[in-house]
Amino acid sequence: MKRFFPILSILTAILLAYALYQALVVVPTDALQGDVYRIIYYHVPSAWTAFLLFLINFVASIIYLIRRSPKVDIVALVCAEVGVVFCTVVLVTGPIWARPVWGIWWAPGDIRLTSTLVLWLIYVSYLVLRRFSTSAQTQVLAAALAVFGALDVPLVYFSIWFFRTQHPQPVIGGGGSMDPRMLRVLLINWLAFLCFAFLVCWSRYRLEVLHREVDQAHALESLAGAGMAEKASLPLSRSAP
């Protein structure tokens, strides 16, 4: 598996460059918004990637609650963390796009941006819980929180959806169908970002495995003072440094 990492990295870099070229040069300018609409090629794929990662986090958390397999827990953690990064990208590029198009940075009534913000808050609280937990079973607490967060998403969406009908809407809905060329470039960009996200998740996964190995080694160390280390060894594998 390890040998594929550099190959995949190079392929992803090429794909990202190609997607960037498509987004900036090949695709025609939007008649209404001008060139600034091209933010969509980063904004939307990032959002889709983040949602996909959060979905995987949800599924992995449920599986963890049933099966208690440590690997599934690492998958959940990794997806939440990388998902938050992509979600941050969405939240930063969103206002940058909104400013020239709508004239304001943030529209509280905008359902997509606001619900993404809530999503971001939920998963940040998930990461904070994992960080601050003193429990020996942090994974269980985190998995439960992930389930709560995922259950919250549709409710957030509907509450904002109804809330905005009371407010003046700065958003001109995504009405009208998309130019097929634009859709094609959008999908190319999404593919590129998915590959990138996969690589990041992979690295983060390996980091977490290494982290747990170090913890294990410390646990061995902590009680080895009385010369007991040879007699007992923890069952989890410890790779050579």
Partner: peptide, 13 residues
């Protein structure tokens, strides 16, 4: 029985 708390093993087999 093994009980591990993070970087500390309280029970080791």
């Amino acid at each position: 029985v093994i009980k591990q708390f993070g970087r500390f093993a309280a029970l080791r087999g």
